[in-house]
Design a binder for these strands. Structure first.
Lengths: 193, 193
DNA sequence: TGACCACTAGACCGACTGGTCTACAGAATA
DNA sequence: TATTCTGTAGACCAGTCGGTCTAGTGGTCA
């Protein structure tokens, strides 16, 4: 028999995957449960708040994973430009490997939630905020002034999200490559701080 | 009595607005029809392909409008950096004025459509492609080499989409401002071509 | 006048949605 | 053994979904 957390984890995994592929509203509960091989009762046992609570929890889970990945990346590549290149590259690979289905797990939800589902929005806002802080810290560590570092971090995430979005629509990673080639070139010609 | 094209136009308008606020799947047909003050029969008369055809048409309509706006912008501001700043600013204003509801009308759809709705994806791919071409042309006109111009155009749209996305999640235009401050600064320090 | 046409109008449909409810299995505690 | 608790299981529900269908309206033209 599977333990409680195993089923719970399967549900979260299925939701993460579905959010990444289809977003919140297009994620049917029945499909989700089929993917997780779990009946309805289980889900409402673990997530009394229903689909929304499951999504919220999945977003927080995703956020943790993404932040951990960023930390690892910046530890291995202290030079921000190198780290960001790696980051972009792996996202690009995942997108292409999945037939242009699996982009950023946070982005789709960010664009379709309505103001009433405040909890989801808050979770997303925290996620993006934390990512910006991580990246800004890396720029600061590389000698950038805090204010510039923070702006650069915002730009990096913007470019990341926007490039993934365009690549998904166009079914080609070319636009990711050129976006980051341009960003890399611009960063490279900065007067080194 | 309203002419045919009036009703049709109202339907397209309602769909455009809804795509911008909620994306495709969260746009209920009934809400749409209520907003357009049109009964179901009318819609299936004008768009036999149903919701999907209406959305596709709305996307093409939006694309036309966006491209026209870009053209106007680049005519008024031949300096690409100035034009892009204006572009970003007006998007930022619209987002804020609408209570962080109305972002890019294309973006939400791009992130939630599944591979089977190929027609929608094609419409989006064409839209982003055409936008990139327009912006790249402006960079070329400003003296940039074609290859660099095209990469810069991709980056600009990426930054635009990504910044709007983060701003929507965080309910603050601050991230748009800082993204574009950083991008502007990076572009400014380029060796002028 | 009457036939035709583009268009409007909304009742209606089956399929499916998210969500609730009851039944029950099995381990832990008494 | 009896009781309780956590977790599993799926039948079931009302409501909503996108979509179809028939009826009717008003203008145009023979």
């Amino acid at each position: 028999m599977s333990t409680a957390s195993e089923t719970r984890q399967r549900l979260l995994g299925a939701m993460e995957d579905s959010l990444q592929r289809r977003g919140f509203h297009a994620s049917g509960l029945n499909d989700l449960l089929a993917a997780a091989e779990a009946p309805k009762g289980v889900m409402y046992h673990h997530f009394p708040g229903g689909k929304t609570e499951l999504a919220e929890e999945a977003i927080r889970e995703t956020t943790k994973r993404v932040l951990k990945a960023l930390d690892r990346l910046f530890t291995r590549h202290p030079e921000p430009r190198a780290a960001l290149a790696k980051w972009m590259e792996s996202a690009s690979e995942q997108l292409e490997r999945s037939g242009f289905e699996r982009g950023c797990p946070l982005a789709a939800v960010a664009l379709e939630i309505s103001p009433e589902s405040q909890s989801l929005r808050t979770a997303l806002a925290e996620a993006f905020g934390a990512m910006r802080v991580r990246i800004a810290a890396a720029f600061v560590a590389a000698g950038e002034a805090p204010r510039e570092a923070s702006a650069l971090a915002a730009l990096c995430i913007s470019a990341y999200e926007g490039a993934l979005l365009q690549a998904r629509a166009g079914q080609s990673v070319e636009v990711i490559r050129s976006s980051f080639r341009a960003l890399g070139a611009l960063l490279a010609q900065r007067p080194s701080p």
